[in-house]
Write a protein that binds this DNA or RNA. Structure first.
Length: 301
RNA sequence: GGUCUCUUGACCGAGUGGCUAGGUGCCGGUCUGCAAAACCGUUUACUCCGGUUCGAAUCCGGAAGAGACCU
């Protein structure tokens, strides 16, 4: 059976170079599972693999989408699944590497079918929310979908509005689509998480932010100012610099915030992957050669 | 040396006699379609010493530290 090796873990844990080594060993290709590296417009700030790494091993879902297009976990699942099928025709194994937990889950377990949301419905929901507030939307949801209302994080506008969009679009309760079914996959998956001691991760994050700045993050962010209203640009490393360009913060403060927000992001990723089923943690704080870790991965069955 | 002002939690910052300020960070968590997003929970406060008062971060006196001005 074909095997998909998944390399997950928090940001700055060293996934990229690790995956390159693994893929070289397996003589195969890498699929990225990163909701930001997937965009063409973003490079330095999202820690895209280096040109050298990209030349070494073919990568997929790096710099493929446009920030303006609809992008979400469902689209990723669909496209990635399709690509995986194609690639398995010439490889026995593949490497999936990334830190976007939802994207990885969508690919591994599937994501329930939901109707596409028309622009009219989306705008209507947004309008209602802006005009009437969250409490009102909660009540509408309670009426439209009592079951989901009882489950959702009712304080989170994102969740409430999304459910309502689906309700309005389909005329059916959101929960009628939410089967949480586990999709069948034609390949086997082996899931690994890279972790490091907290202090070490913090050090790596700070260092990497410094490097990004040296590589020209400031100029990259500045060039993206025209796109800053897009969700894709609501990203650590860019949003803080937009505030700097708007003169809302000093450059120093912006940089400090990037470090802080990156740490917080890493923590959320740890929380997510900690509950990922069948994930095996590899603690890279332990000084071991790359070969040691690769051997470990290949010996898991 | 003198006069005046200030001193709140890791940080910012309200309060000015009894009622959890708030924000940020830290720590922990949530999660089926914007997910590097969005959201939730938690967290050694009132510089120190006396006094007044049933009760003081809040009033009075003193000390220490910081700042402004004067000689």
């Amino acid at each position: 059976m074909k095997t998909l090796y998944v390399i997950a873990g928090p940001t700055a844990s060293g996934k990229t170079s690790f995956a390159v080594c693994l893929a070289q060993k397996l003589k195969t290709e890498i699929l990225s599972a990163d909701s930001r590296q997937i965009f063409k417009e973003m490079n330095i700030g999202v820690a895209r693999p280096t040109q050298q790494e990209l030349d070494c091993v073919p990568h997929h879902f790096i710099a493929e989408w446009n920030v303006g297009q609809t992008s979400n976990a469902a689209r990723y699942e669909k496209e990635a699944l399709c690509r995986i099928d194609t690639l398995f025709q010439k490889h026995e194994s593949l490497v999936l590497c990334g830190g976007s937990g939802l994207y990885i889950d969508a690919l591994l377990k599937g994501i329930d079918f939901m109707p596409d949301i028309s622009l009219e419905v989306r705008n209507e929901v947004q309008r209602l929310y802006k005009e009437r507030g969250l409490a009102f939307m909660q009540n509408v949801l309670k009426e439209k979908d009592r079951e989901y209302f009882a489950l959702v994080d009712i304080q989170n506008p994102r969740r409430v509005l999304r459910a309502l969009e689906v309700c309005f679009e389909s005329g059916k309760p959101f929960s009628s689509f939410r089967k949480q079914a586990n999709a069948e996959r034609s390949f086997e998956t082996k899931v690994f998480g890279l972790k490091r001691a907290r202090a070490e991760l913090v050090e790596r994050i700070d260092k990497r932010v410094g490097q990004m700045l040296e590589e020209g993050l400031l100029a990259e962010a500045e060039s993206l100012i025209p796109l800053k209203h897009l969700q894709a640009l609501n990203t650590v490393g860019y949003k803080e610099l937009f505030d700097y360009f708007d003169k809302k913060t000093s450059l120093n403060d912006a940089v400090e915030l990037i470090k802080i927000h990156t740490r917080q992001y890493a923590k959320r990723q740890m929380t997510w992957f900690n509950k990922t089923e069948n994930l095996i943690w590899l603690d890279l704080s332990k000084e071991q050669s790359m070969d040691y870790w690769i051997e470990r991965i290949l010996s898991v069955d």
